[in-house]
Amino acid sequence: MDEMDSGIVKKFMFVNRKAPHGTVYALEVLEMVLISAAFDQDVHLAFIDDGIYQIKKGQAPAEIGVKNFSPTYRALEGYDIEKLYVEAEGMAERGLTEDDLLVPVEVLSRAEMGKLMAEMDVVLTA
């Protein structure tokens, strides 16, 4: 499709601030991220605040009757989406470490995350 090959490459960042399961945002952001892969943009995912819970290992939502979409984060690499960032302070506040996460990420300080966000052309938050 022509529209996918516009020749323009922008820095996109999907900022995840909300926990999964309690609301639908995490799941539907992931759908946006997957579509963005088709447009050859410079895609970044940031997990800050409660968004960090989206990539917590061992999610088993069978008993609450919803789909377990967390394995999708591990599939992102197959779509060439490899720039995943997690905020160190947010992890510490929640008693989490990198070992608790289900996908490889780059851990940034809050200050570094702020600087990275400032470089983006398009920021999508939910």
Partner: peptide, 10 residues
């Protein structure tokens, strides 16, 4: 959803 990404680009 591609229409949203396209809006982000264009």
């Amino acid at each position: 959803l591609g229409q949203l990404i396209e809006a982000g680009i264009q």
